[in-house]
Write a protein that binds this DNA or RNA. Sequence first.
DNA 1: CGTCATTGTGGAATCGATTCCATGGAATCG
DNA 2: CGATTCCATGGAATCGATTCCACAATGACG
Lengths: 337, 337
Amino acid sequence: MRSVTIKDVAVKAGVSTATASRVLSKHPSTSPAARNAVEQAVAELGFRPNAQARSLRKTTTQTIGLLLPDIRNPFFADLAHAVEQRARDFGYVTLFGNANENMEQQERYFDVMLSQRVDGLIAAPQGDRAGLVGILESGLPTVFVDRVIEGTGVPSISPDNRTGIRAAVAHLTGLGHRRIGYIAGPQSTSTGRERLQAYQEAIAASPADASPELVYLGDFQAASGAAGAHALLDLPDAPTALLAADSLMSIGAIGVCNERGISIGSEVAFVGYDDIEAFTLLNPALTVIAHDVDAMGRGAVEMLVDVLAGEPAQSRVLPSRLIIRGSTPELLEEVGP
Amino acid sequence: MRSVTIKDVAVKAGVSTATASRVLSKHPSTSPAARNAVEQAVAELGFRPNAQARSLRKTTTQTIGLLLPDIRNPFFADLAHAVEQRARDFGYVTLFGNANENMEQQERYFDVMLSQRVDGLIAAPQGDRAGLVGILESGLPTVFVDRVIEGTGVPSISPDNRTGIRAAVAHLTGLGHRRIGYIAGPQSTSTGRERLQAYQEAIAASPADASPELVYLGDFQAASGAAGAHALLDLPDAPTALLAADSLMSIGAIGVCNERGISIGSEVAFVGYDDIEAFTLLNPALTVIAHDVDAMGRGAVEMLVDVLAGEPAQSRVLPSRLIIRGSTPELLEEVGP
DNA sequence: CGTCATTGTGGAATCGATTCCATGGAATCG
DNA sequence: CGATTCCATGGAATCGATTCCACAATGACG
């Protein structure tokens, strides 16, 4: 299946490859006659330009890379969708890589993106500068989304991790909770670190119990949410409220509560992370810390387009908000025996 | 940021580009001296081969395309993950496209995949042969996954849509349900068609009511699940059980039941589609028709690899099974007044 | 009516890697 | 020891599109 080249088109249209190329790229200096002949030849032969050859000659590929930690996380699935649709508006195709919350696969994909000569990269990175020297030195225009790595000078669009957590802690202490268990994200990510720090600060500034046993370090995947819920609920003085730092860990933790017959809402209050649709279906529905994923994805693409145009990009932080639902009800007065 | 080419490497190592290329591609005929010199030059210069140039000369790109209808559907997110990991095992990078349940975007991505000269394509297509002539005529090695288009000769790996639905209908009629509402998928997809047909056949062969008003035609997206639930529950003689043909429509429909204060399990039985984790968290947990997504994704890649090796591929159908949970309880005897 | 821009065109160079072909030197064999 | 194979190597062709450059034809203008 040797494919049709521009030479075949040129021969069929009775012009040179130069003219054929000019017609195809809508160069102004082409005669109507040549245009017709070439267009007809293209249609008849089913010619499809070879993107490899084109981008070898031009320096651009009309392709952007998108590197995400876990596509099965609904938050990132939504983000991928938003990025992809917006990139499309600008005529870019998205080359997608799934790092699987794994440093090694992340590096491998950085390599692939560089080899494929993507025009720019949108990444939700993990680790520190060390793992990114390859990308940083390459000069590949890059934007961080959701997660950030400090000291790299890479512009980013990320959620305000602190206010959401603060609002959640205030909400829970306002309801009377004093032991609030926290299932944290990995400290190799900025979101994991900032959220944990915000939790610790908010707890310290509140009447709630600040003992470290109330923090479980997870890895943003469902299994660790389950493990965290077990660990926290097994404490001699179990927390009366749980807070999880992402949606997958929330799912894992809620599963464990159900398994153990601990009723969310009445027996333990629960605040989840990310407003995924399934959380509204729970009974009671889940109180969550939510972000505008769509705005984040679109914003990342727009920022990258600015960088590609040589304009200086300003990092942005998007607000989070607390959506209060049934999983964090008013605490009932305890009735004495 | 002019990037480092193999010529720079060759000059630095004091050899020709031909020798440098041989070292890099591990050609046997290279001297240890040349190998060392080239490897050192590569490391010092941070050389990264240009994938465009390479695949222009070779005929292969080490890239496969993956075209899915909607990455926000957890079923397809899981599928994407499975495909991507398995492709990685074979040394392929996955170029991912999201058709957004939309024929136009699907065609656009077929175009992109052809231009990018992916070595092969895995697609969950929609529409009929007409929309695929481009791909079919191009001779691009293709495998269908989940969805199928008949009469194309393209090998496929798909779920057994019929037995799952049959089992669900049998389960519901066995519980005593006689009016079973069905929220169907779009008839432009094989899964939508086969599941609806299986529902109709199963209903016809059962004591249940076969009136067409019990079928609502959705489009595999959450909003249509919601609309379907409203329509069915608004019927003068509302169904006592609901069955939805995919996970997003299930989510939409469950949301509507909650909104209307109709308790799933006690007031209406519900069977969802696809075993996504969040469904196990519902109270009661959802009875679902489930597939082995991981096997489907891995199988698709393996099948494509076979096709690429020139071996004839055998289409496969993977079993579905009914997982019975709390949303379809024993019907209580109605107590007379 | 000559000069000068403008426009459409084709030939050939180019992008960066791979690979065919020819060559010189070393190793092997009768 | 001469003939032959084998190996490592460099020069040059190649993949398919774009684009620089040169040139001819046309039109505009003083």
